[in-house]
Design a binder for these strands. Sequence first.
DNA 1: CCTCCACCGGAAAGCCGGGTCA
DNA 2: TGACCCGGCTTTCCGGTGGAGG
Length: 416
Amino acid sequence: MDETNIFENILNSKKIFRNRDVLRHSYTPDYLPHRKSQIEALASILVSALKGETPSNVLIYGKTGTGKTATVRFVGKELEKYSIRKNARCYMHYLNCEIIDTQYRVLATLAKVLGRNVPMTGWPTDQVYEEVRMAIDEREQTIIIVLDEIDKLVKKGDDVLYSLSRINSDLQRAKVSLIGITNDLKFKNFLDPRVISSLSEEEIIFPPYNAEQLQDILAQRAELAFYENVLDDEVIPYCAALAAQEHGDARKALDLLRVSGEIAERDGDDTVTREHVRKAVKKIECDHVVEVVRTLPTQNKILLYGMILLSSIGRKKFTTGEVYTVYKSLCKRIGIDVLTQRRISDLISELDMLGILNSIVISKGRYGRTREIRLDIPVEPVKEAILEDYRLQLLSKSENIIKSTTLDLFGTGSVF
DNA sequence: CCTCCACCGGAAAGCCGGGTCA
DNA sequence: TGACCCGGCTTTCCGGTGGAGG
């Protein structure tokens, strides 16, 4: 009895995930909780395809993580399955306009999906369009083209949408309908009115999930993703509650659950607890901040580096003037133009907006009025991210000298 | 109650790279 | 091709200000 327990323990301690991929965004589940009405709405529009009619074009709205893409893919799969049985020849082709982000590439990708060989660059756009049109019209069929993140495409001109939305009048045998997906409610403003009216013959709206609905979603996925009894009872409600606070984003909730599991696995624990979720929140936050810092313009990086220096010599909070002095000496050292204090003041506000630091305007009476700045970041990872910038390599090389000059300048100032 | 610090933050103009149009 | 425009970034200029110290 005891011996089996030993083995069982070792086995169990390594096994948290049955299938981690279930928790990734790319996974399309077989069942979508709390999206019944949207699924039915979409299905009732697309059903015309099975009757040999042209389905209306659809525009789908909803914030990130509300299940838009999953729902469309799900309905599409069902449609294709059923059409095979009915011999109806319906197909759905999915394009993500964030990746395929120009007019030409949309058409070229379509042509490729339809089995035509079109170079990814070079041809005139109308010729590619013609190729697509011919490929579609080769036989009787209904093609549903899904344009995800359609707003990204619209910002680069709506010619493709215009021609695709009127393609039906150029077709003899086949039929085409479009589904546009967007999370930008105002995106219609950029659109040609003619395109709007044909594109949004039907509209479906995806509201955010609330905490209970998120729980159902998580529970359903967790069952596939984790081994039995790995999750503490409170983990799912906790993840759901956290994600519900932020616009009910299912994607966030799933990330949270996955990262929690990964942390538990890495720590060698055999159950996932509330504590792991808490760590996961931290980790996701940290990754996010690091990503933001990495993509910051060089000037902001130097500024931020200056503030990190200040905090590394024991200063918890500092004023605009102090930060500016450090920033100036850093710029001179690495031979980069020095911005004015006015400008730096704005950059500080920007960093504040990004949540990298907290700043409040305070008055020190006789000693003036200034912003009191304190950093709000995991220092080490951020520092690494800053030093990745090749223009700032010099900073890491002369780190000690810089640090001691900074210490000379401000080390004597009030420490608390 | 007044002063005056050390900066805030609005306004406007300059600069620059990219895009458009004849 | 050059003239022109646009939008984002930056500088210049400057009036404004909360409150400790007098």
